[in-house]
Amino acid sequence: MILRTKYTKVGYLKYLSHLDMVRLFTRTFSKVGIPIKFSDGYNPHPKFSIGNPLPLGTESLAEYMDVELTEWIEPADFAKRINEALPEGIKITSCWETEKGASLTSMIAWSHYEIRFRTKNTDQASEFEDSLDRWDKLSEVFITKKKKKGKIKVDRQVDIIPLIGNIIYKGIDEDGFHIVNAFLRTGETGNLKPIELVGAIDRELQLDIDLDMVLIKRLDVLADENGEIKELA
């Protein structure tokens, strides 16, 4: 049986690395006695895969993991038992049975982010919204991406406008951070990182954004089925 699990990673635990997460889940499964399948071989390890791991320091409400079990178990029961053992900040929000099929990573095509940052030039919500209007009129915005060619990295110019679904301004929070929600392409067929978007906005609109303190939270990841954007099944 394969269980597809959606979970959160928020608060200070956003600083756990992919390896830390693997260790945490491995320990948690064995602690609560989940009948997880182990790989064959000399050094057997539990079979689960985390889709599209986040860069260190990004919060998420939408992490996905596929877990292979040796016995059938009620998904809700699985979530409940695991959640009791997981730390605050990492909790399963939903889980369901799924078929062996396309890998999580290959399915994910879009990410929805909440991005927060401060600017030196505009501390007014209205001013910032006006600036964003200018952004909406741009037909192309190029950024430099590093691309690996064999062993050396080469710079490559990429137009990011096609990688952006939408950008919506949400206002200013109590600590003076502008909040922007954005749909961005994620995955092998096109990828735009939130920090790259913020860098481009900063450059194009000359907002003097504090790029050292950009707080990012992934709200959801979505699949693209022949042009139709869908929840992961």
């Binding site: 608060g11 200070y12 635990l13 600083y15 756990l16 690395s17 830390d20 260190l56 320091g57 730390p87 605050e88 900040g89 050292d212």
Partner: peptide, 14 residues
């Protein structure tokens, strides 16, 4: 924490 190599050294919460 965004800039250091192993931030989980400094967050506790274990």
């Amino acid at each position: 924490l965004m800039k250091v190599e192993k931030p989980s050294r400094y967050i506790g919460m274990e």
